[in-house]
Nucleic acid binder design. Structure first.
Lengths: 204, 204
DNA sequence: GGCAGCCTACCATCTGGTAGGTAGGGATTG
DNA sequence: CAATCCCTACCTACCAGATGGTAGGCTGCC
């Protein structure tokens, strides 16, 4: 039969990704995935020989998808504030699905993961910070945003705060605090001289 | 008679705490603890009947110790900026031990934990935010700190950013980015009119 | 004598992983 | 054209080791 339905290995990755994002790498098993996909455990090993292989594929795909999303943001708008807001939306939409950023989740499991995975996770954060740093530097040059300190340290600040906000918001079971953090973060770089975007957000 | 050696159950908690902070709740076993303490696995169940019980005791002790530390900070200084810096030091010293905040780590495992633990973890974050909010409100009243937005939303921002900074710093294996985040965070509330505080400013 | 604190021995269940086999489709070859 | 071959994708059956947890017994102190 022609491959009418999604490639099995893609479905495996989809399910594994959801499991990592909600439970963590050490809190799901091949049996869990097999059940969800509808094949036997042994067949999983045909697609991903070991759990480490599965993990590596998972991170690689996630990184690529994230980079795509970043490119798409840059293509859509040249406004730094808008780019930053779109960036925070990336995190927000994950949180609204009841999930944690996959690499944030894996970061907490890092000590138990094989080295290739750890390096790829660090790579994810590096890419994110590099992208943000570029957006921040460009935005400053154009007078779209204002801030003190280096673009790269502020970029790291963004990533850390967003990851932490997801973590804490999930622990409380309430996504609203996340939006507060986003608000503080974006307010931090808003150019004051520009149009009077007074936008005093309702403080709930 | 003074107990010559630490109570076994305290040693168990110490070791379990370190394991949670470095590996997560699902990545260590009773066997790991037993080996480290030097007793048999079955004896552990004498102190903590189930792993859930151990987890609950762990969080309870951690919360209490943290509250003690906060009280101690308030007793030591009345300066809001100093209090905030001392607060960030609490996190920094954990990170320098190669550990993650225990409740941050547990937050990522939350979906797999028994409800009492989850609630206690949320309680930890609530207490932290409440303390910070109080310090921030008081500090503003005294003109020691300046900021926009409500104290409680800024408090949540502090907690989120610090937790995230630990998470990301640990993933990269380098604690320096954490200090950057602390710097940004403290800079955000520094009163501009007040005397020039000579804090470290190297931007690495 | 009771009990805290420890022990040995054992349990069912789950873990990631392996061995070896079957079904079917597409290409290669006589 | 058909027979063969190979490969992908799946299967059943199994494995050793780890998991959290239990049953029941010993010892030494108040």
């Amino acid at each position: 039969m022609a491959p009418v339905r999604r490639q099995t290995s893609e479905r495996v990755l989809d399910i594994a990704e959801a499991l990592v994002q909600t439970r963590g790498f050490n809190a799901f098993s091949y049996a869990d995935i097999a059940r969800a996909v509808g094949i036997r455990k042994a067949s999983l090993h045909h697609h991903f020989a070991t759990k480490a292989d599965l993990g590596a594929a998972l991170v690689a795909r996630y990184r690529a998808a994230f980079l795509d999303a970043l490119r798409s943001i840059e293509a859509d708008t040249e406004s730094a504030p808008e780019r930053l807001e779109r960036y925070t939306d990336l995190y927000g939409s994950v949180l609204r699905k009841g999930r944690m950023c996959m690499c944030g989740m894996l970061a907490s499991d890092a000590a138990t993961l094989p080295k290739p995975m750890r390096e790829s996770i660090a790579g994810f954060f590096g890419e994110n910070e590099a992208w943000l740093a570029r957006v921040l530097a460009e935005g400053k040059k154009r007078g779209q945003v204002e801030y003190e300190g280096t673009p790269s340290s502020l970029a790291a600040f963004f990533v850390s705060s967003l990851e932490g906000a997801m973590l804490v918001a999930r622990a409380g079971g309430d996504p609203r605090p996340f939006d507060d953090v986003v608000h503080h973060l974006l307010g931090r770089v808003r150019a004051k001289k520009a149009a009077p975007r007074r936008r005093r957000q309702p403080q709930r």
